[in-house]
Design a protein around this nucleic acid. Structure first.
Lengths: 180, 180
DNA sequence: CGCGGCTCTTGGTAGTTTTACCAAATCCTT
DNA sequence: AAGGATTTGGTAAAACTACCAAGAGCCGCG
């Protein structure tokens, strides 16, 4: 893997583990196993790095979140989604991206595309569960998923997990069944 | 206002504007208009400051969010809530708290209390709109509210606002009407 | 009153971390 | 072999954390 990519992946890893303040040149370079001066070579300022990380993770996350995960290990839909919302790494990353996009307007288009792709990946998942979902339904479900993810990260206890599960069930139950 | 409080409010302001990496001694002391050494006097380490800010904002936010706002300027329920989710300062603060609680286990109890209080404030609001909500209903609505808030901050365009509004309407419509 | 002890304020500073930069060497492609 | 891209091994300067000594203000107690 080339140095640039190694740097981005390392930064992504740190972001998922410890949040945005982990992203400093010394830490990232150590995590990536490259010299610090590589960072400033590929990303002149730390802001450039942050931006690039966001852009890079939009791509790598949209794929991971939307697709593979769900279809590889199938199960009740609510369970599959609940599992995804429980993955702290993923939620931290998502929140990090939201904040980056909030701070930096140049990231907004990427963020919007990211959300569109994510939802695009959600659609076949629903269909495979026998549900026919309009874009409005998907937006609704997506909102619930985000809410569940954030609240679980915030509380991080069994109650939160059980509640998230129940909330997801309810949201899914509200979707229209596909006519056969 | 005493120095300690000035510091906390200043930190809160910075958190609402620019996120957690704004919280440094130089920035906070400048924003608060106090000497830097005051920071280390009242909050020996920067972690202490972060913790104190979180605790302080749990209190000040729970009041603000749950209560006054809604009852002072009444209107359609969805509109009132939608407005709250549009306030970026507030959402940034909420996310900042979530992340702080995620990083620092000592803040988790405060976070849980915060969420309980918030929901406690939501209940009379619903009742005043003629809705009888069980704790499960409130949890559901709260989840949707959080999702809307985050997605709006992420996208920050008219589509996102319209969508949030529609999603909220739908969530509220799903609540049971109070029997008269 | 006035003295001792407390809290708080002032005005620093030492030491670490981080950013941003650079010249020289090396590699790679054409 | 020329020329651009990358790597090496730095360093200057800024930002930041944590600490401290000395003084001011305050309060209760004798």
């Amino acid at each position: 893997m080339d140095v640039r990519t190694r740097i981005l992946e390392a930064a992504l890893r740190l972001l998922g583990e410890g949040g945005a303040q982990q992203i400093t040149q010394p830490r990232v370079s150590k995590e990536a196993g490259v010299r610090q001066s590589h960072l400033t070579y590929y990303f002149p300022t730390i802001t450039d790095l942050l931006q690039a990380v966001a852009r890079h993770s939009f791509q790598s996350l949209a794929k991971e979140l939307g697709g593979s995960d769900a279809r590889e290990r199938p199960g009740p839909l609510a369970e599959v989604i609940a599992k995804a919302t429980r993955d702290k790494r993923r939620v931290r990353l998502m929140l990090g991206l939201v904040q980056s996009a909030d701070r930096d307007v140049t990231l907004k288009p990427g963020m919007r595309r990211f959300i569109r792709e994510l939802r695009g990946g959600l659609e076949p998942l629903l269909r495979s569960a026998g549900l026919e979902a309009t874009p409005e339904d998907i937006a609704f479900l997506h909102t619930v998923v985000v809410g569940c993810a954030v609240l679980q990260l915030a509380r991080d206890d069994n109650d939160a997990r059980a509640e998230a599960r129940a909330v997801l069930e309810k949201a899914i139950a509200s979707l229209p069944k596909e006519r056969p």
